[in-house]
């Protein structure tokens, strides 16, 4: 398990994860605003699991987490993201977004976004989706002359591109 711990007050770190595995992120100083990107791809018969736990321990901290997964062939991708808000973390603002794209009918996915909140002065939310590439998107690109493989590739590329960073000075 890899542990990241932020102890510098008012820090604005950006963390990017691309390898499956177990991660623990502790936000231990006041005013830390973390932005976390996770990009994961599986193919063939791979079976991968990402376990990410973000723990808010200090006051007025924020975390914005965007996890993207793409599962192809016969692979199996599982993403378990948990936000824990400890009683000491007054004024937490946390958001966790998990999205998984399935490229083949044989690919499998699991998305488990958890929230454990022991403090009322918080704003926490999470969202998760699992879907395949909509046929109409493929159709649109193919009607512009791309073949199916190229169209798929483009859509995956767009899907994995990091979301535009929240406007920051």
């Amino acid at each position: 398990m890899e542990t990241y711990r932020y102890t510098q007050p008012a820090e604005h770190p950006v963390l990017t994860l691309t390898q499956a595995g177990e991660y623990r992120v502790e936000i231990a100083a006041e005013g830390v605003e973390l932005t976390l990107f996770g990009l994961f791809q599986t193919a063939d018969t791979q079976m991968e699991q990402v376990t990410l736990t973000i723990i808010h321990q200090a006051r007025h901290t924020q975390s914005h987490t965007y996890l993207r997964g793409v599962a192809a062939d016969h692979s199996h991708l599982s993403i378990i993201g948990t936000i824990i808000v400890e009683p000491s973390a007054v004024g937490t603002n946390a958001f966790l977004d998990e999205r998984i794209l399935l490229l083949t009918p044989t690919a499998r996915a699991e998305a488990i976004p958890n929230l454990q909140i022991s403090q009322n002065e918080v704003k926490c939310s999470h969202a998760a989706t699992i879907s395949s590439i909509p046929e109409d998107q493929l159709f649109y690109l193919m009607s512009r002359g791309l073949d199916r493989a190229k169209a798929t590739e483009m859509i995956v590329e767009g899907f994995l591109a990091p979301p535009v960073l929240p406007f920051q000075a």
């Binding site: 399935l102 490229l103 083949t104 009918p105 044989t106 690919a107 499998r108 998305a111 976004p113 929230l115 909140i117 918080v122 704003k123 926490c124 939310s125 999470h126 969202a127 998760a128 989706t129 699992i130 879907s131 395949s132």
Partner: peptide, 13 residues
């Protein structure tokens, strides 16, 4: 399986 749509949203406040 593929060709499905799943959405989940949660907020705590």
């Amino acid at each position: 399986t593929s060709e499905v749509e799943l959405e989940h949203e949660a907020t705590v406040s």
